[in-house]
């Protein structure tokens, strides 16, 4: 139960960061908070429900990999945007170029 309270609180904090921050780096950090909280909750649930530890670790490792890939692509977008227009804020991104 304590892990659930902890992860729910951290997930809410991450959501708050995503909603309130304007800078893309801070928004990305908020998304990382939510991913980390969800990953800890996954491991916690697996531990409590009797799922084999190695299966839980494999699944959590996949979440880790996806989060790392997300950060890499996110940082590339931030650096590219800052080079093009000296901007890295969410309010400045109002159109996409397909």
């Amino acid at each position: 139960m304590s892990a659930l309270v902890l992860c729910a609180a951290v997930f809410g904090l991450g959501l708050y960061v995503v909603l309130t921050r304007r800078e893309l780096i801070a928004v990305l950090a908020g998304a990382e908070l939510m991913l980390g909280a969800a990953n800890v909750q996954l491991v916690s649930f697996a531990s409590m429900s009797g799922v084999p530890g190695e299966s839980a670790q494999a699944l959590a490792l996949m979440v880790l990999v996806v989060a790392a890939a997300e950060v890499g692509v996110g940082m590339a977008i931030i650096v590219t945007l800052s080079r093009r227009s000296a901007r890295s804020r969410t309010d400045d991104l109002q159109e996409v170029n397909g």
Binding site: M1, A3, C7, A8, A9, S44, S47, M48
Partner: peptide
Amino acid sequence: VSGMLFMTLRESVGGWLPQSG
């Protein structure tokens, strides 16, 4: 959202401190 997560999932967990894996 934090409260919703807690209220939704609280039936799924056991005691306050989980067992070590």
